[in-house]
């Protein structure tokens, strides 16, 4: 099996996995009506881990990370994020959502607000940050994703790659401890994928805890410390990227890898 390649040099000096548990999922099950989408999921994420979740479409990988900030409700088992258990208690849900940032496949920027307003909205209304301070933070992150000059434009005026970088900056403005990425590059043109992946790599280099659903195996190879393969709502295999790509154990994984890498 050929290893996927990624041309960028990744600085691993700050990528340290600590003993502290960031996310603990035990025996979690979820159904859509009668359809059993997630089956007996057990997953522990340490602080500082970069986990890539791969798998065929319909395998439940997006649903899994959407359960972590309660965009989807699980019916059985336990999810603890940052020491807070996710139950029907709205206060806990809000607390978790404040600590967990999420980036979506279709960016989901707010089209009626400028880029700067998109970034300052949650800090001002949720964290009660003063407007001036929120704007300074927003400009800081816009510079980080390299589009400070777009601050006063509206999302519709930006390219897909720029919009996704704004979406990442918007999440970062809430100073999250964990970032979830739900297929962040799947809706982008090939030439724009790289700029978004570069931003994500920079984030990983700073030691952010990341869970990332993606088909970008080069990114997994370069950044992840663990790759999880899901099929039919279950975790089929997980391993470090080197062994995952060179020596996949399960037949499903081998089949999947040969399909997405073997061309």
């Amino acid at each position: 099996m050929t290893e996927p390649q990624f041309e960028r040099q990744v600085d691993r000096s700050h990528m340290q996995v600590s003993d502290e548990v960031a996310i603990q999922i035990e025996n979690m099950n979820k159904w859509y009506g009668q359809f059993h989408v997630l089956r007996d999921i057990d997953l522990t994420v340490q602080r500082g881990e970069r986990i890539v979740i791969a798998g065929p479409s319909g395998s439940g990988k997006s649903t899994l990370i959407r359960c972590i900030n309660r965009l989807e409700e699980h019916q059985a088992g336990k999810i603890v994020v940052d020491g807070i258990e996710l139950t029907n208690d709205l206060k806990n849900i809000d607390k978790v959502r404040r600590e967990v940032g999420m980036v979506f496949q279709h960016f989901n920027l707010f089209p009626h607000l400028t880029i700067l307003e998109n970034l300052t909205l949650a800090p001002i209304w949720v964290r009660k940050t003063p407007k001036k301070e929120a704007e300074a933070t927003a400009m800081h992150y816009l510079e980080k994703v390299k589009i400070p000059e777009q601050a006063d434009k509206y999302p519709g005026q930006l390219s897909g790659g720029q919009q996704q970088r704004v979406a990442i900056a918007r999440s970062l403005c809430m100073k999250p401890r964990i970032m979830l990425f739900d297929e962040p590059t799947s809706a982008l043109d090939p030439e724009m994928i790289k700029e978004v992946l570069d931003t994500m790599i920079e984030l990983a280099e700073e030691g952010m805890t990341m869970l990332c659903v993606t088909h970008e195996m080069g990114f997994a190879q370069a950044v992840a410390n663990r790759v999880i393969f899901m099929a039919d709502g279950q975790i089929v295999e997980q391993n470090n990227p080197h062994d995952f790509f060179n020596n996949p154990k399960s037949e499903r994984t081998q089949q999947f890898l040969s399909q997405i890498l073997g061309h």
């Binding site: 965009l71 940032g101 989901n108 920027l109 949650a122």
Partner: peptide
């Protein structure tokens, strides 16, 4: 997605 983004931001 608009509802989800608002939810995800808390």
């Amino acid at each position: 997605g608009q509802y989800e983004a608002a939810d995800a931001l808390g």
